[in-house]
């Protein structure tokens, strides 16, 4: 993957802290993600990686520290939040497609109501992205009629229809049967090739090696190590990272 296209900072996390009651789940997280950069976040469960990326589009609120997305600070100000959510797309582990709407309606809902696009234009846009994720023929079906891998690809297309600057992925393949993981990863690799800024929480290390500029390892609420994929996988510095790698790479 080309490394010369990195631009200015897209997301800045500055000493971000979050507590769930007495539990300190994010501890002084500081991370900067540049435009067109692709970052994979990994770590054991409970490390706070999902919480961290959910803070970026305010699905979770941080209690201390600052988060800047595309130059705007993330606060309680609803105007700022609306702007940020328009530019940040998210793909969830459990897809979260809207079951009572067709695939096409799932994709056109936000462009029509948030970006105020005319319906015909929104549908054309949606079909472009559905073709890109390789399931244009399912446009009139309902989510319940699709397989898990197809649903997740629709979820990616739905997020792309808002033409965001950053795409966040929260364990996108963890809920899929093994034979469907490849089709979703292929879609994400193609997306990466087009220059999208991506932050991806995943256990798929092959994907990280192929696509990521940087891998960030989190454990127990803090960033322990980060660096190029080659460095992280072949030359882990800390014991915790060594332990984690031995656990997930066993049997591969």
């Amino acid at each position: 993957m080309s490394q010369t296209e990195i631009g200015k900072p897209a997301i800045i996390l500055d000493k971000v802290n979050k507590w769930y009651g007495p539990l300190h789940v994010l501890r002084d997280i500081s991370l900067t993600i540049m435009e067109k950069e692709r970052v994979v976040v990994c770590g054991p469960s409970g490390s706070g990686k999902s919480t961290m990326i959910r803070c970026i589009n305010r699905l979770e609120t941080h209690q201390a520290g600052h988060i800047y997305v595309d130059g705007t600070e993330l606060t309680d100000d609803t105007r700022a939040l609306d702007t940020i959510r328009r530019e940040v797309g998210m793909v969830f582990q459990s897809f979260n497609l809207f079951p009572h709407l067709t695939i096409l309606e799932n994709c056109t809902l936000a462009p029509i109501w948030v970006r105020k696009m005319p319906k015909v234009q929104a549908e054309e846009l949606a079909m472009t992205f559905l073709e890109r994720v390789k399931i244009p023929e399912q446009a009139k079906k309902y989510p319940g009629q699709l397989s898990g891998g197809q649903q997740q690809r629709v979820a990616i297309a739905r997020a792309l229809c808002m033409q965001p600057k950053v795409m966040l992925f929260d364990e996108p393949t963890s809920a899929l049967d093994p034979e469907m993981i490849k089709e979703v990863l292929d879609t994400m690799i193609e997306l990466a090739g087009s220059g999208m800024t991506m932050v991806c929480v995943t256990h798929e290390m092959g994907f990280a090696r192929q696509v990521a500029h940087r891998v960030v390892f989190m454990d127990r609420g803090e960033i322990v190590e980060s660096g190029e994929p080659k460095q992280i996988f072949e030359n882990p510095q800390t014991d915790r990272l060594k332990l984690f790698l031995s656990q997930i790479l066993r049997g591969h």
């Binding site: 589009n57 699905l59 609306d82 959510r85 328009r86 940040v88 797309g89 998210m90 969830f92 459990s94 979260n96 497609l97 809207f98 079951p99 009572h100 809902l109 936000a110 109501w113 948030v114 979820a155 739905r158 997020a159 808002m162």
Partner: peptide, 27 residues
């Protein structure tokens, strides 16, 4: 209604009133 529906709609930038009308209430 699964909380994920609220989250996904919010992540797309839909405001609370729209989410209620188009996503949550029908379900």
């Amino acid at each position: 209604v699964n909380y994920g529906q609220w989250e996904a709609a919010g992540a797309l930038g839909l405001k609370r009133g729209l989410v209620l009308r188009h996503i949550v209430l029908p379900q």
